[in-house]
């Protein structure tokens, strides 16, 4: 047996820069109401959403990611060639092979950075951040780029009154790099596959190839519907609020802090009611700034945490150096929570 030499990276890792991209088209609830029987008041009271952004043909998953990443790289004060790995979390990039991360890494001008996609739904940002932290500390990348990007408008059933208003498009990215002190806490993460039915795609892609259209959903005009994301609202709400509050508390405990030490809370922007209920269940002190980017962004799955982070910093509601609790949770069911220092 030969002795294998190990590599050592940085002592610790931190988020060095963040960037976001929101599609140019802003979609108010009135547009959603053209295809569902509901009201602006109902949508706002059940979700908090007033407007969301929907991508146009040019605003592809890759294009939005490149825009967000460019800002994150500039914010971090590094050059693209220094990035050793690009991790993209998405469930809405429809060309599965090759991974979209490779195109993004190339167009950003990285020097042949490792690049791959991951699928962890609305927990994707936390999963990617955990991978990036590991790479920086292990030494396989000095700097790693984590991107959460979605075009969920492509996976929205506009005739489903429970979800038609919910989803939005966008990209958020962070650069993770070396640090002399810990600025990303331990990740508390996991999966509950026994609850896989609560959030899912209506039909698998290969159902379209099998030729048996009787199993495919139809729209009101009898046309075959594209797959969409559906969810069992009450079950998801209960799990998200009460189970995820426990996970959030575990992340605080693992980082060795209490909610009194927190400056900012950035939960996945799933629904403002979930956010408000989590804040109550966690008994967060008044001084903690809570991200409620969902109002004007909708639920952008893997993109929601970095987008909300970027906006809080841009508006001055949060500042560089603040201590933030981030938690993502969603289809799987999967979750990931950690405490970070804001870039």
């Amino acid at each position: 047996m030969s002795k294998i030499k190990a590599r050592k990276g940085a002592p610790y890792a931190r988020i060095l820069g963040v960037g976001g991209y929101r599609p140019t088209r802003v979609v108010p609830n009135e547009v959603i109401l053209e295809t569902i029987d509901s009201s602006d008041e109902w949508i706002r009271s059940r979700s908090g959403i007033e407007t969301r952004h929907w991508a146009n043909d040019e605003e592809t998953v890759a294009a939005m990611s490149i825009e967000a990443s460019g800002k994150a790289i500039a914010d971090a004060g590094i050059r693209a060639e220094q990035i050793g790995a690009v991790v993209v979390s998405t469930v809405s990039h429809f060309s599965q092979t090759p991974a979209v991360a490779t195109e993004i890494a190339d167009k950003l001008g990285t020097d042949k950075a490792a690049a791959f996609d991951i699928s962890a739904g609305c927990a994707g940002f936390g999963y990617g951040l955990t991978l990036a932290k590991g790479m920086v500390v292990e030494g396989s990348a000095e700097y790693a780029l984590v991107i959460g990007v979605e075009r969920l408008s492509d996976l929205t059933d506009l005739e489903d009154r429970a979800t038609a208003f919910l989803f939005g498009d966008g990209a958020g990215a962070v650069v993770v790099g070396p640090s002399e002190e810990p600025h990303i806490g331990p990740t508390v993460w996991g999966s509950e596959g026994d609850k896989s039915e609560t959030i899912k795609q209506t039909v698998p892609w290969n159902q379209f190839r099998l030729g048996d259209v009787s199993k495919l959903p139809l729209d009101s005009e009898g046309n075959v519907k594209f797959p969409a994301i559906t969810q069992e609202g009450q079950a998801v709400f209960r799990w998200a609020v009460f189970e995820m509050a426990k996970v959030a508390q575990q992340a605080l405990d693992a980082a060795g802090i209490t909610s009194d030490d927190l400056d900012v809370f950035i939960p996945h922007q799933a629904n403002v009611r979930i956010i408000d209920s989590m804040v109550k269940t966690l008994k967060l002190p008044e001084h903690v700034t809570v991200a409620r980017d969902i109002r004007t962004t909708g639920n952008t799955s893997a993109a929601s945490i970095p987008l909300a982070m970027e906006r809080l910093l841009a508006t001055g509601e949060a500042k560089s150096g603040d201590t933030a609790l981030v938690i993502g949770f969603g289809a799987g069911l999967v979750y990931a929570a950690t405490v970070v220092t804001l870039p």
Binding site: S45, R46, E232, G233, Q234, R238, V241, N271, S277
Partner: peptide, 25 residues
Amino acid sequence: DSLSMVEVVVAAEERFDVKIPDDDV
């Protein structure tokens, strides 16, 4: 509403030591 109902149910579960599954809500 349907979401507040979940909060009511969870609070009732704690208060009365009872399990109310989503399907029964």
